[in-house]
Nucleic acid binder design. Structure first.
Lengths: 116, 116
DNA sequence: CAGTATCCAAAGGGATACTG
DNA sequence: CAGTATCCCTTTGGATACTG
């Protein structure tokens, strides 16, 4: 695609790719999305346990960004103490194709690098 | 995919996605790949001009990583002074699908965020 | 031309402690 | 439980100058 386009569309496409990358960037974004996606609904401390090595500070920060990007929905449940539940939005689910592509490419890449 | 898998495959897939992201990460990787892809063959200083804001230090560093990952091929031409040409490898071209997906998702995302 | 080297400011992110 | 706040070290990356 990027190879066959005429120049005037080029910049818009580059911006679109970068937008996507920005949304997914950060060491933990995809892991968080995957965790929530896998369990459909997931609480803060559960995600913290799911992902090896993440700190509460980072999780908090990344969740906020994902929410701002409307990929996840945050729901406060009226329990004692408070419970917070995260789930993917419809828009969040549209990432599945990309994540699948990245998974497949990653596997192919590993073979390529390690010398098939 | 990540949503429907049983746990024992989960970690491998997560690793594969991260591998892909690592390869594409860095502020300039995709822009560099696109530049080379667009022109088929491209020289160092040409890429430097193509990409707005990149420094020679960064371009040098990113090109090295892309080469290590076998996405691009570096050829030194015996001219005076030296010319260096970069082109995508076959493996590099396999990124096209992903870049296209990221482009399309980025456009959809923009609409979603800006409120259609 | 195609890089390397150096300096330095800003951002990233871990560890730990604290709060409603 | 679900976060915030703080300290502080590490990494990132821009600007500039230099080299074969």
């Amino acid at each position: 695609m990027a190879c066959t386009n005429f120049e005037k569309e080029y910049k818009n496409e580059m911006r679109a790719v970068q937008d996507s990358m920005d949304v997914l960037n950060g060491k933990w974004k995809i892991a968080i999305i995957s965790s929530i996606c896998y369990y459909s609904k997931r609480r803060f401390s559960d995600i913290l346990d799911d992902i090896d090595g993440i700190s509460n500070k980072m999780l908090s920060k990344e969740l906020k960004e994902l929410e701002l990007n409307k990929l996840i929905k945050r729901t406060v449940l009226d329990t004692q103490p408070v419970t917070v539940q995260y789930e993917l939005t419809e828009h969040g689910y549209t990432l599945q194709t990309i994540i699948q592509n990245l998974t497949e490419w990653g596997i192919r890449h590993r073979k390529e690098i390690l010398g098939k």
